[in-house]
């Protein structure tokens, strides 16, 4: 047995790449990403091989009609991509966010690894910060994966071509990239609301599923409240009121206003929730 004395440098505790390695080997991560890859494949299979409706063109169409976003889905890879974003923003991406942020600390508690990391010692704030960054990176990665897969699948199924705006006009090449990038950017920021709730939950419980589920329930309740007409203008204070505000990026001239409101609300909620999560975790007795 040698007696080489180990030294310690707090700056090297819990590097982000180590946490990435710890998380990306998990089945949870693989399954979540697989869902995002499957969505466009399932939709394309449904369109291509599903029951054909009558009419010359309608066999390749689905959705509510020619005026809306979904109705244009089969007109090319870009439109298919934004349609997949539309399908995913309501629940799938919220679920992905809740899993990545809600599971991250609670699962360590469940595996009993949390106490060994903290006693290593990984400073608590360092641990939370890395957990937050990796959770958000994983969420962003899921979003990018969905977009890239949708584009590839859409390109194979429906060909390239410009992004046709449901509001009239079309965007070609770099403009289409810009529009989709703005959409994706806003979707990511609006997901921060879910991320904030899930992150606060994950430091508050030792049950990963409980944290994920609680975050989902809060987001769903917010969506239900948003659907209650009687609440009138009060609804504009619900972060979920802006779930689809990113379609403003598909207007001939980008309509920033609802996106700005939604982004500001989601970000404000995120900052406050994450702040509470840090303060809670600072002083928490680790009993797991």
């Amino acid at each position: 047995m040698t007696s080489t004395a180990a030294t310690y440098d707090v700056r090297t505790a819990m590097p982000i790449r180590v946490e990435l390695a710890r998380q990306f080997r998990r089945r949870r991560t693989v399954v979540t990403y697989a869902l995002l890859v499957l969505l466009p494949l399932i939709v394309v299979a449904a369109v291509k091989f599903g029951p054909q409706s009558s009419g010359s063109d309608s066999g390749r169409r689905f959705g509510g009609g020619s005026l809306d976003l979904v109705g244009l889905a089969t007109s090319g890879a870009w439109n298919f991509t934004v349609t997949m974003l539309f399908f995913a923003t309501g629940f799938l991406l919220v679920l992905v966010t809740a899993v990545f942020l809600g599971d991250t600390v609670a699962s360590e508690a469940q595996w009993s690894t949390l106490r060994y990391l903290l006693a290593a010692p990984v400073p608590r704030r360092r641990l939370l910060w890395v957990k937050l960054v990796v959770g958000l990176l994983s969420t962003a990665g899921g979003l990018v994966l969905l977009i890239v897969t949708s584009y590839a699948v859409g390109w194979l199924a429906f060909g390239g071509g410009p992004l046709a705006s449901p509001a009239g006009g079309s965007f070609s090449g770099p403009d289409a990239v810009w529009r989709v990038a703005v959409s994706a950017g806003f979707i990511f920021i609006s997901l921060l609301f879910t991320a904030g709730i899930a992150f606060l939950m994950t430091v508050s419980t030792d049950a990963p599923l409980g944290a994920v589920g609680t975050a989902l329930i809060i987001v769903i309740v917010s969506s239900i409240l948003d659907a209650i007409e009687a609440l009138g203008d009060l609804r504009q204070w619900l972060p979920t009121d802006y779930t689809n505000a990113w379609v403003g990026a598909l207007q001939p001239q980008i309509d920033w206003s609802p996106m700005a409101r939604g982004a500001a609300l989601a970000f404000a909620a995120f900052v406050v929730l994450v702040g509470i999560a840090f303060l809670r975790f600072d002083r928490k007795d680790i009993l797991s």
Partner: peptide
């Protein structure tokens, strides 16, 4: 993975 997360340097053995 644990050793790389600890912030300790030297020979983990």
């Amino acid at each position: 993975l644990y050793w790389r997360a600890t912030g300790r340097t030297g020979d983990p053995g």
